[in-house]
Amino acid sequence: MNKNNVWSKSFELNVNNTPEQIWQVFVDTANWKQWNPGVKSIKIEGPFVSGTWFSMELPDGEIVRSQLVDVAEEIHFIDETLIGETRVRVEHRIEVVNPGQSKFIYAIHTQGPDAQAFGEGISSDFPHVMAGLAKYLADKMV
Rank of each mutant, 00 (worst) to 15 (best):
Q101A: 11
L68G: 00
Y136W: 12
R87M: 07
Q111A: 09
D79V: 10
E57Y: 05
E62N: 14
S50W: 00
A30W: 03
S66M: 06
V64L: 14
W35P: 05
L68Y: 07
I108L: 14
F104R: 00
I63T: 13
S66T: 03
I94G: 04
N17M: 13
P37A: 14
A115I: 03
T110D: 03
T52A: 08
A131D: 12
K40Y: 10
L133P: 01
K135N: 15
G61T: 10
L68K: 00
T29Y: 01
P99C: 07
L82S: 12
Q21L: 09
S66L: 02
L137V: 11
L82I: 12
K43R: 12
E85C: 06
E45D: 15
D70Y: 06
K43Q: 09
P47W: 05
S41H: 08
H92K: 03
V71P: 02
G119T: 10
V71A: 04
D79M: 11
E120K: 13
N31W: 05
V69A: 06
R89D: 00
G132E: 02
N36F: 00
S55L: 02
S66F: 01
V49Q: 08
S10C: 13
F77K: 02
T29N: 02
P37F: 13
V64S: 14
P127H: 12
K40G: 10
V88N: 04
P127A: 13
K33N: 13
N2L: 15
N4L: 15
P113F: 07
R65I: 09
S124K: 12
D139H: 08
G61Y: 11
N31F: 03
Q24K: 13
G119E: 08
A30T: 08
K135P: 03
L133A: 06
P47A: 15
D79E: 15
G61W: 10
V64N: 10
F48Q: 04
L137T: 12
Q111H: 05
G112V: 05
K9I: 11
K135G: 12
D28W: 09
E85P: 01
L68S: 01
Q34N: 15
V96Y: 01
I83T: 09
Q111E: 14
A134Y: 05
S66Y: 00
E85R: 05
A115S: 11
L13P: 03
K9M: 09
I83K: 07
E91W: 03
E57R: 06
H92D: 07
S123M: 14
R93V: 02
L58G: 01
D70I: 06
A115F: 05
F118P: 00
D79I: 03
M1K: 06
D70S: 13
F104M: 11
V71L: 02
A72H: 11
Q116Y: 04
T86R: 04
F77L: 07
M1Q: 09
K40S: 15
R93S: 07
W35G: 10
G121F: 11
V90L: 08
F11I: 09
L82F: 09
V71N: 01
D28I: 13
V88F: 00
T52M: 03
A138I: 12
M56A: 03
G119Q: 08
V49K: 09
E73G: 04
I75A: 14
I63V: 15
G112T: 05
N14V: 11
I42W: 00
V96F: 02
G84H: 06
Q116R: 13
M130P: 01
T81H: 11
H92T: 00
G46V: 07
Q24S: 10
N36E: 03
